[in-house]
Nucleic acid binder design. Structure first.
Lengths: 149, 149
DNA sequence: CACAATTAAATTGTGCACAACTTATATGGA
DNA sequence: TCCATATAAGTTGTGCACAATTTAATTGTG
């Protein structure tokens, strides 16, 4: 036996999971300076993206879109509310639900966020076709992993 | 104007970054039941993978392999030490360094972790060629994003 | 109607990530 | 040699993720 890595042991840089973990953190880090200008974290930005598509949304609906539970969303939404970007209102029709509405400031922020994804795509160093294929493969992978529970 | 999503606004499910964020969390979630049996979290498992390749490693070396800083690693290593899997010892040659050694229990755990990556690959629902290409593309993307800082 | 089961959101507790700062040690010139 | 600079690790504080639990409102069924 030698000092070389054991052949049967999993090797870090061979692992897809680590590649995704690293890529995800690198992408979030690349977003950070742009999001800093908006005063948002990356998960807060994701919530705003969903609301910019359609609002109001209940906490449960936001959670379904993003795959997050109320344990993550409740405090996050409280911070967005204290930033003056959203308002949380109990639904009159169903008192269990909390509807998250955009404020005028929250709606206005959309304009300043428009260019962000393109700036990341530029920094990615991949062709548009590669980016598209990567996104498609990841989406399929995510669905398969969720299905195999 | 209609109620439809604004065409110029970034759409969530078109965004590569969200695809990576979701895929990374789904993969970690798929690992969780297997890692629960070992008593490890996913980042702890990553540290053990590095040590199984070669040990001892300093905190700085671990951080370079994994892209993590001492703010993350110091408490994580303290937890691994309290689990009896590693020992932290000040380097005699350089008193600033802390060398992380595997204990016998830490070394032995490797055997129980061997099959884990294959089980995830099976659940991924992608062909080996797709998995390999995905990993390669992600690695290239991570490098590009780090380079563009 | 009554009431058990379900659903929605919040809360509590643990463990990352990461920025900012602190402490201690080492190193490279003037 | 002296000491400014750099480096290694730890600490503090904020904000996710996520499991487990709690509280409150709603729904389905006898």
């Amino acid at each position: 036996m030698t000092d070389a890595p054991r052949d049967n042991a999993p090797r870090l840089n061979r692992q897809l999971c680590f590649a995704m973990y690293s890529a995800s953190r690198a992408a979030t880090a690349a977003y950070r300076p742009m999001l800093d200008e908006l005063g948002l974290t990356y998960p807060q930005y994701l919530v705003m993206l969903v609301l910019w598509e359609d609002e109001p949304r209940s906490v449960r609906e936001l959670g379904e879109e993003l795959g997050l539970d109320s344990g993550t969303l409740s405090p996050l939404l409280k911070r967005l509310e204290s930033l003056g970007l959203v308002e949380r209102r109990r639904s009159a029709a169903d008192e269990r639900r909390v509807e998250v509405h955009l404020t005028d400031a929250g709606t206005a922020l959309s304009a300043r966020a428009t260019g962000i994804p393109q700036r990341l795509a530029d920094a990615a160093g991949l062709s548009p076709a590669e980016l598209d294929q990567l996104r498609e493969t990841l989406t399929r992978l995510t669905a398969a992993l969720h299905g195999s529970r």
